[in-house]
Amino acid sequence: MSGNLLKNTLLPPRVKLQGQVLAEPSAGSKFQPRLPRHIPLAIVVPLLVIALIAVCALAPGWIAPFAPTDMDDNAILSAPSFHHLFGTDAFGRDIFSLVIFGAQRSLEIAVFSMVFSSIVGTSIGLVSGFSGGWIDMALMRLIDIWMSVPPMLLALIIAAALGGSFDAIIAAIGSMTLPPFARVIRSQVIAVKARPFVAASQALGASPLRVMLQHVLPHILSQFLVLATLGLGQAILVGATLSFIGLGVIDDRPDWGYLLSQGRDYISDAWWYATFPGLAITALAVSVNLLGDTLKSRFDPHHQKR
């Protein structure tokens, strides 16, 4: 009797519950990573733009209709047409091709400076947050001093001091993106350090380096990713600014900032010269920043609350 009742009243809801559970996307195996059902446009579009620019940077010769050194005497400062999509410059060079070849230099500068400042910044943040005491104190005062010089001024002086080479630009951009990196990573490390598993691994006799790299670092990876992406957006802009002011690397592969500075001189005769390189910088920076914002709202618990 009671068994019957159980069958009638309890079973149907349970079946229904199971049905619902099965409909959930993540019900398969416990160990499968959760994949979102659809990837939002705010990730797809920026990724596509970045991929396109990366292809331009990796194989400019495949896409560009002309070589960056090709000069056409019959088409000096000619407006955009089917033959020259973005018009030509004062030497009759095709601006569309120049922009495609410029992608290489611009991306190179942005990525290398970000790798540099994220490695150095994270190391400073890790050491400072993990060791505490006078080391932390000294490193943070150094960062304070560093940040007390208006950022672009310091970058200008470093770029000039080391003299228009690739390394100089990397160091100059790094001088702007590095300090915030160190600060944020430090505060994250201090938060993670207080958690019991760190004390547990220390009690097991793990060396500080091992604790730092194997236990603390993985917990700040999401923050690291957000910082690196947003820093990359900044690096793109700073790199372009340095070239625009005339402190960039100048050879036969001019980057977008340099093209823009050239275009600025012909602004009253050739609107296309400055417009298209600027459009390229903006497209790349908007994409990287959008991606950074999306990552931030994914990973930042403060954001998720809303």
Binding site: G233, F244, G257, L260, R264, T282
Partner: peptide, 10 residues
């Protein structure tokens, strides 16, 4: 995301 000098040029 725009470089400020490009905004100026525009």
């Amino acid at each position: 995301s725009m470089p400020d000098f490009w905004l100026g040029v525009l």
